[in-house]
Design a protein around this nucleic acid. Structure first.
Lengths: 215, 215
DNA sequence: ATCAAGTCTGAAACTTGTTCTAGATTAGCG
DNA sequence: CGCTAATCTAGAACAAGTTTCAGACTTGAT
């Protein structure tokens, strides 16, 4: 991974939610870039997202692209944030129908999974970037993680989950990412992914504080 | 990831367990390469494993290195296989002391985790390679997965696990990999990893087929 | 020992992520 | 409007993974 990308330099980058409100033209550039990224990723996955092409395709100089997204991984993780938000919106509209929290979470995740199936290359690019991200991308990856957590908690539909349930959610996220990877790299079938998801979702019920139940 | 590594060419590669018994000198070369790979990885993780350096350091031409391991990811996954075998051997010697299968698995994984902690850069390189691997590395990644499964089953110490328990093992593996990644990229503490491991290990007991017994 | 086939070597070439530079453009401000 | 600082552009340059190739070396069979 060509990255003499180390040095400490003055940070002139865009992005941090702190300063820099982004002018209109800048916002537009950012959108164009993310759009181009997603488009290329949909075509051929991680490898097909080539920085020069993204730049050209979004009518932006290569240097500018790097100013908006300091690396290919940053770009793809941002793309994932973008898509996740979209998906969270969609999922919100039709809440899952299951009776137990576990069922609802499993249903939601499988629904998300089917959505990813429709654009497997895009999914590949995003997930590979996510797991390949090193420390320099931590904030962005964390953001994705929080968003995922939010989706799961939404699906559970519990007002305030117990600490055990939060642990279960963490484990569900782990499983979700890892299962996705095994599927994307062709080492697990969709059926297998479903089983894994359903299996891990049991943890929610298990950790539910049922007074009077001998655990 | 510079990889115009697509074309279909006659496969002259070493490695496949099928043919090619590997002469002594070849076996030696292979060892030197894996050793160099591990050494460089221990220094600086994924980025520090540079193919030119591995080649030089193992006294082998670059072309030869690529003949033994068709990509950097292949090399690092092979390195992982190597280390995993070593670790399985070590773990076997002192079986975990817990009372329940879940406890034993958690104990074993935490032990493995501490071993990885001792060489965090090496762990980084191997795990990143593993999750970044695409379809062309599936066989090797699968092998690593089987080895991991074997370690977990060993720790459980059950003669023939139920299908549910096998599912649990799969989920444990998912969690293990993903938790490792979050730790390696500094997004989770060791304590957090322990909690995640212990949480997911409950699935084993939950899925235990105890007729009439609440353990 | 000899020959063919298969390997290994060294070096150059190619690809793609990333950085750098010099000169246009743009934005905000007085 | 006229500045100044920040931003953007085009394009060259650099790093590291990967491929290629010609020639030297090994190996195995005869």
């Amino acid at each position: 991974m060509p990255a003499h990308a180390k040095g400490d330099k003055v940070d002139t980058s865009i992005q941090r939610p702190s300063a820099a409100p982004l002018t209109e033209r800048q916002e537009a550039r950012r959108r164009r870039i993310l759009h181009a990224s997603a488009r290329l990723a949909s075509r051929g996955g991680f490898d097909a997202v080539q920085m020069r092409e993204v730049a050209e395709s979004s009518q932006v100089a290569l240097g500018t692209l790097y100013r908006y997204f300091p690396s290919k991984v940053h770009l793809l993780v941002a793309t994932m944030q973008d898509q996740l938000e979209r998906m969270h919106g969609t999922l919100r509209k039709k809440p899952p129908a299951g009776d137990t929290p576990a069922e609802r979470v499993a249903e939601t995740l499988m629904r998300a999974f089917r959505a990813l199936q429709r654009e497997p290359h895009l999914a590949d690019a995003m997930v590979r970037a996510l797991t390949f991200a090193d420390r320099s991308v931590s904030p962005e990856v964390d953001q994705v993680s929080r968003q995922t957590t939010a989706i799961i908690l939404d699906a559970m539909g519990l007002a305030d989950p117990t600490p055990q349930q939060l642990s279960a959610v963490r484990v569900i996220e782990h499983t979700w990412h890892s299962a996705l990877i095994t599927w994307l790299s062709g080492r697990a079938s969709i059926a297998q992914v479903r089983i894994d998801i359903e299996t891990v979702c049991r943890l929610i019920d298990v950790t539910e504080p049922e007074p009077g139940a001998r655990e």
